[in-house]
Protein backbone atom coordinates (compact mmCIF):
# COMPACT_ATOMS: atom_id res chain seq x y z
CA UNK A 1 0.00 0.00 0.00
CA UNK A 2 2.78 2.38 1.00
CA UNK A 3 4.81 1.37 -2.05
CA UNK A 4 1.77 2.02 -4.25
CA UNK A 5 1.50 5.55 -2.95
CA UNK A 6 5.21 6.20 -3.45
CA UNK A 7 4.94 4.80 -6.98
CA UNK A 8 2.00 7.10 -7.65
CA UNK A 9 4.02 10.12 -6.48
CA UNK A 10 6.97 9.08 -8.66
CA UNK A 11 4.70 8.57 -11.64
CA UNK A 12 3.14 12.01 -11.26
CA UNK A 13 6.56 13.64 -11.42
CA UNK A 14 7.80 11.61 -14.40
CA UNK A 15 7.10 14.41 -16.86
CA UNK A 16 9.15 16.91 -14.85
CA UNK A 17 12.54 17.15 -16.54
CA UNK A 18 15.39 19.61 -16.25
CA UNK A 19 15.78 21.27 -19.63
CA UNK A 20 19.20 22.86 -19.03
CA UNK A 21 21.82 21.30 -21.28
CA UNK A 22 25.23 20.18 -20.10
CA UNK A 23 26.67 23.25 -21.85
CA UNK A 24 24.36 25.50 -19.82
CA UNK A 25 25.59 23.93 -16.60
CA UNK A 26 29.28 24.03 -17.47
CA UNK A 27 29.00 27.68 -18.56
CA UNK A 28 27.38 28.46 -15.24
CA UNK A 29 30.03 26.40 -13.48
CA UNK A 30 32.72 28.54 -15.08
CA UNK A 31 31.04 31.60 -13.61
CA UNK A 32 31.02 29.88 -10.21
CA UNK A 33 34.76 29.30 -10.50
CA UNK A 34 35.34 32.91 -11.51
CA UNK A 35 33.28 34.09 -8.53
CA UNK A 36 35.34 31.93 -6.20
CA UNK A 37 38.63 33.15 -7.66
CA UNK A 38 37.64 36.81 -7.58
CA UNK A 39 36.46 36.32 -3.99
CA UNK A 40 39.81 34.81 -3.07
CA UNK A 41 41.71 37.59 -4.80
CA UNK A 42 39.62 40.25 -3.09
CA UNK A 43 40.12 38.62 0.30
CA UNK A 44 43.86 38.49 -0.26
CA UNK A 45 43.98 42.13 -1.36
CA UNK A 46 41.93 43.29 1.61
CA UNK A 47 44.05 41.24 4.00
CA UNK A 48 47.20 42.75 2.55
CA UNK A 49 45.74 46.24 2.79
CA UNK A 50 44.71 45.71 6.39
CA UNK A 51 48.07 44.29 7.28
CA UNK A 52 49.91 47.23 5.76
CA UNK A 53 47.46 49.88 6.94
CA UNK A 54 46.87 51.10 3.42
CA UNK A 55 43.52 52.62 2.60
CA UNK A 56 41.93 50.70 -0.21
CA UNK A 57 39.13 51.73 -2.49
CA UNK A 58 37.47 49.76 -5.22
CA UNK A 59 37.39 51.34 -8.65
CA UNK A 60 34.18 53.08 -9.60
CA UNK A 61 31.53 51.32 -11.59
CA UNK A 62 31.64 50.69 -15.29
CA UNK A 63 28.98 50.65 -17.92
CA UNK A 64 30.67 47.76 -19.71
CA UNK A 65 31.82 45.13 -19.51
CA UNK A 66 30.52 42.81 -16.84
CA UNK A 67 33.79 40.90 -16.98
CA UNK A 68 35.54 43.66 -15.02
CA UNK A 69 35.02 41.87 -11.74
CA UNK A 70 36.44 44.57 -9.50
CA UNK A 71 34.09 47.30 -10.69
CA UNK A 72 31.83 48.43 -7.85
CA UNK A 73 28.87 48.03 -10.15
CA UNK A 74 28.02 47.42 -13.78
CA UNK A 75 25.15 48.28 -16.08
CA UNK A 76 24.60 46.24 -19.20
CA UNK A 77 21.90 46.68 -21.84
CA UNK A 78 20.50 43.40 -23.14
CA UNK A 79 19.38 42.99 -26.77
CA UNK A 80 15.74 43.25 -25.66
CA UNK A 81 16.46 46.61 -24.01
CA UNK A 82 16.44 45.34 -20.43
CA UNK A 83 19.13 46.85 -18.20
CA UNK A 84 21.02 44.36 -16.08
CA UNK A 85 22.47 45.98 -12.96
CA UNK A 86 24.96 44.26 -10.70
CA UNK A 87 26.17 46.06 -7.57
CA UNK A 88 29.23 44.52 -5.99
CA UNK A 89 30.23 47.29 -3.66
CA UNK A 90 28.22 50.15 -2.21
CA UNK A 91 30.35 52.84 -3.80
CA UNK A 92 29.81 55.76 -6.18
CA UNK A 93 26.00 55.92 -6.19
CA UNK A 94 26.13 59.22 -8.13
CA UNK A 95 28.10 57.49 -10.88
CA UNK A 96 25.53 54.71 -11.05
CA UNK A 97 22.71 57.27 -11.13
CA UNK A 98 24.42 59.02 -14.04
CA UNK A 99 25.07 55.76 -15.85
CA UNK A 100 21.42 54.74 -15.59
CA UNK A 101 20.38 58.15 -16.89
CA UNK A 102 22.71 57.68 -19.88
CA UNK A 103 21.06 54.29 -20.44
CA UNK A 104 17.63 55.95 -20.54
CA UNK A 105 16.47 55.38 -16.96
CA UNK A 106 15.96 58.50 -14.84
CA UNK A 107 16.92 57.33 -11.37
CA UNK A 108 18.23 58.18 -7.95
CA UNK A 109 20.55 55.64 -6.37
CA UNK A 110 21.47 55.95 -2.70
CA UNK A 111 23.62 53.82 -0.42
CA UNK A 112 23.10 54.37 3.31
CA UNK A 113 24.66 53.00 6.46
CA UNK A 114 22.27 52.78 9.40
CA UNK A 115 22.13 51.33 12.88
CA UNK A 116 19.02 49.23 13.45
CA UNK A 117 17.24 48.40 16.65
CA UNK A 118 16.23 44.77 16.66
CA UNK A 119 12.93 44.52 18.43
CA UNK A 120 9.99 42.32 17.60
CA UNK A 121 7.60 44.11 15.29
CA UNK A 122 10.08 46.75 14.17
CA UNK A 123 10.32 47.29 10.44
CA UNK A 124 13.56 47.00 8.55
CA UNK A 125 15.14 50.39 7.78
CA UNK A 126 13.21 52.23 5.12
CA UNK A 127 12.66 55.70 3.69
CA UNK A 128 10.35 58.15 5.42
CA UNK A 129 7.21 59.11 3.56
CA UNK A 130 8.31 62.55 2.35
CA UNK A 131 5.61 63.02 -0.24
CA UNK A 132 7.10 60.88 -2.96
CA UNK A 133 4.31 59.73 -5.30
CA UNK A 134 4.92 56.03 -5.86
CA UNK A 135 3.53 54.06 -8.76
CA UNK A 136 2.28 50.49 -8.50
CA UNK A 137 3.82 49.88 -11.92
CA UNK A 138 7.12 49.14 -10.16
CA UNK A 139 6.28 45.48 -10.53
CA UNK A 140 6.27 45.82 -14.31
CA UNK A 141 9.50 47.79 -14.44
CA UNK A 142 11.67 45.87 -11.99
CA UNK A 143 12.12 42.30 -13.13
CA UNK A 144 12.85 39.81 -10.44
CA UNK A 145 16.25 38.25 -11.16
CA UNK A 146 16.33 34.54 -11.77
CA UNK A 147 20.04 34.25 -10.98
CA UNK A 148 21.52 33.96 -7.56
CA UNK A 149 24.04 36.78 -7.90
CA UNK A 150 23.95 39.02 -4.91
CA UNK A 151 22.62 42.50 -5.69
CA UNK A 152 21.56 41.84 -9.26
CA UNK A 153 18.46 43.50 -10.68
CA UNK A 154 16.88 44.09 -14.05
CA UNK A 155 14.98 47.16 -15.22
CA UNK A 156 12.73 47.40 -18.25
CA UNK A 157 12.96 51.05 -19.40
CA UNK A 158 10.19 50.50 -21.95
CA UNK A 159 7.76 49.74 -19.12
CA UNK A 160 8.41 53.07 -17.35
CA UNK A 161 5.60 55.57 -17.92
CA UNK A 162 6.77 58.98 -19.18
CA UNK A 163 7.78 61.31 -16.36
CA UNK A 164 8.60 58.56 -13.87
CA UNK A 165 11.92 57.79 -12.19
CA UNK A 166 13.40 54.88 -10.32
CA UNK A 167 14.37 55.35 -6.69
CA UNK A 168 16.69 52.70 -5.37
CA UNK A 169 18.14 52.75 -1.85
CA UNK A 170 20.36 50.07 -0.34
CA UNK A 171 20.67 50.24 3.44
CA UNK A 172 23.74 48.69 4.96
CA UNK A 173 22.40 47.84 8.39
CA UNK A 174 24.25 46.97 11.56
CA UNK A 175 22.00 45.78 14.35
CA UNK A 176 22.51 46.05 18.08
CA UNK A 177 24.20 42.65 18.16
CA UNK A 178 26.79 43.86 15.67
CA UNK A 179 25.43 41.75 12.84
CA UNK A 180 25.28 43.29 9.38
CA UNK A 181 22.76 42.83 6.63
CA UNK A 182 21.28 44.81 3.79
CA UNK A 183 17.81 46.06 3.10
CA UNK A 184 16.66 47.42 -0.23
CA UNK A 185 14.01 50.05 -0.89
CA UNK A 186 12.76 50.27 -4.46
CA UNK A 187 10.12 52.54 -5.88
CA UNK A 188 8.91 53.95 -9.17
CA UNK A 189 7.95 57.56 -8.59
CA UNK A 190 6.18 60.25 -10.52
CA UNK A 191 8.65 63.04 -11.23
CA UNK A 192 11.95 63.26 -9.42
CA UNK A 193 12.60 61.04 -6.39
CA UNK A 194 12.84 62.68 -2.99
CA UNK A 195 16.21 61.88 -1.37
CA UNK A 196 15.69 59.19 1.24
CA UNK A 197 15.46 60.11 4.90
CA UNK A 198 16.08 56.79 6.56
CA UNK A 199 13.83 55.50 9.33
CA UNK A 200 14.73 52.43 11.35
Amino acid sequence: MTQDLHALVREEFQRVRLTDTLDDVTARGLRVRRRRRSGSVLSAVFALALASGVALSLPPGRAEPDSVRLAAWSVRTEPDGTLQIVIRDLADPDGLTAELKRAGVPALIEFKEVEAVTEPGRLAPHCADDGEVRSPLLLSVMVRPTGTDKRAWAIRPDAMPPGTSMHFVIFSVRDAAGKSYESVHMSLVDGDPVPCRSVS
Binding site: E12, R15, V184, S187
Partner: peptide
Amino acid sequence: REVPAVEWTDPIQPPPDDDLPD
Protein backbone atom coordinates in the same frame (compact mmCIF):
# COMPACT_ATOMS: atom_id res chain seq x y z
CA ARG B 1 14.87 41.45 3.75
CA GLU B 2 14.16 43.72 0.86
CA VAL B 3 11.45 46.31 1.31
CA PRO B 4 9.80 47.37 -1.91
CA ALA B 5 7.77 50.55 -1.75
CA VAL B 6 4.80 48.63 -3.02
CA GLU B 7 4.13 45.03 -2.28
CA TRP B 8 6.28 42.75 -4.39
CA THR B 9 4.25 39.96 -5.87
CA ASP B 10 5.60 36.73 -7.22
CA PRO B 11 5.74 37.08 -11.01
CA ILE B 12 6.67 33.47 -11.57
CA GLN B 13 5.06 32.17 -14.73
CA PRO B 14 3.86 28.58 -14.46
CA PRO B 15 5.16 26.18 -17.09
CA PRO B 16 2.72 24.36 -19.37
CA ASP B 17 0.23 22.33 -17.36
CA ASP B 18 1.02 19.08 -19.10
CA ASP B 19 4.49 19.07 -17.55
CA LEU B 20 3.22 19.46 -14.01
CA PRO B 21 2.11 16.79 -11.55
CA ASP B 22 -1.52 16.60 -10.51
